[in-house]
Design a protein around this nucleic acid. Sequence first.
DNA 1: TCAACCAATAATGTATACATTCTTGCACAA
DNA 2: TTGTGCAAGAATGTATACATTATTGGTTGA
Lengths: 249, 249
Amino acid sequence: MENAPTASQDEGLTPNRTRSLSVADRIRSAILCGDFAPGEKLREVHLSETLGVSRTPIRSALQALAAEGLLDYAPNRGYAVRSFQTAEIVDAYEIRAMMEALAARFAAERGLSDAERAVIEGALADGDRLLAKGSLHDDDRVTYGSINFAFHDAIHSAARCRMLGEMIRLCQSVAPSSHRNIVAFEFDDVRRRHDDHHRIYDAILARDSYRAEILMREHVASVRSSLVRSMLKRAAGSTPPSSRLSAAG
Amino acid sequence: MENAPTASQDEGLTPNRTRSLSVADRIRSAILCGDFAPGEKLREVHLSETLGVSRTPIRSALQALAAEGLLDYAPNRGYAVRSFQTAEIVDAYEIRAMMEALAARFAAERGLSDAERAVIEGALADGDRLLAKGSLHDDDRVTYGSINFAFHDAIHSAARCRMLGEMIRLCQSVAPSSHRNIVAFEFDDVRRRHDDHHRIYDAILARDSYRAEILMREHVASVRSSLVRSMLKRAAGSTPPSSRLSAAG
DNA sequence: TCAACCAATAATGTATACATTCTTGCACAA
DNA sequence: TTGTGCAAGAATGTATACATTATTGGTTGA
């Protein structure tokens, strides 16, 4: 009902899309959207019936998602949604800070292509324009998210290192999996980070690899700090110790 | 013939070993031993006949090895042995240097368990004993390899970060896959690196996370430098430019 | 009441047949 | 000779039946 037959919806744009890959995308989205509780078991037959494909592509998709770190696997016991502790998410930002710093260093050492330079300069200009307003609405935050992604993605590409890109992807797949992870950045936070972007770009252009590395490391680490601060604030605010026990179990 | 029926060789020590996992281990070993040429295609039916299992566990194993980075995959075109350029191997050491440095920092921040401390002190003492001889035979180099592994593995464990451990594993799976990668370390190299181990342990014990990180980063980076030097020397020595064209194609 | 045991059930693991896609080789025309 | 097109073969993708392993529930014994 809800899902059209997969075979007939092949779109010409994406040439080789196997059922396994499509199914992996759908399950991944569902996990990241929080449709499954952490630790929840994913049964093959159930997914098979829900998604309208046989168990074979389901198994393949689950294995792929486990390799991405989204699922836990135990032989003969199947797959379960991996539950990330707060500490693991914070650690992932530390790892990502190191990896992005290395990417910035590589980019500085190896130089930017014309396309990459254009993307970065576009991202910087777009950000300048957005921040010139002096405040941010929710839509603006989404927009800045795209700008931010474009900036970092161009640097990953400029690093010319496939393994580094893969590892950064792994780090990124951890954080969004936690639902309570939407940090409402303040305007000043965003402005400061956008200023970081300018400096990092300057360092890369100047082929100053050491400065590019240090700046990027601090840049990502500051996101981690904001995250921790935000989580502490929420923990203290939303569930004060007194009201906790009085709430119905 | 050569392979006993997998089902009957279940050993009590390893409880849940599926055919997929066993097959993945065998193919992984074959790749790391260089039984397949870089870029060589791995056909499912062929492997299925060779290893005496059906295509199902073969496909699962190939997907796992692709996730580990040992194989390349393209939809409808199967799997091929990933060929690592020299630059990629060198880059992997840079990545590993960052990751191991972070692991050392985490270990210093979070402390060592009694077991981890015992392993490290054992590795340091064993290394001291080996190096006291003043020279190394080939057997000694193998022995020191085990000592080195024990030291680093204990620190990975002390980092208390699963994702970090997984990423370091990924880095390590790259380097050995290149055959021309056996660096014949000189005695002085090994002695210097063992001294690094002592200093790193001291820093971790002293909870000096900054020093532990810096020392470990330099420690791994020095291996990369030795590797590069060794490759340059071999390139210059074994195939001098003059003899290159005279050799039969 | 509680623990251990065992059968029934349901899940995952494997083998195999079929479907789809890619590759290969040759025929044919420019 | 060279390039295009097509058909045969071989490879991968999928579905399904069967095998093996976990889990569950109840029974039995203390």
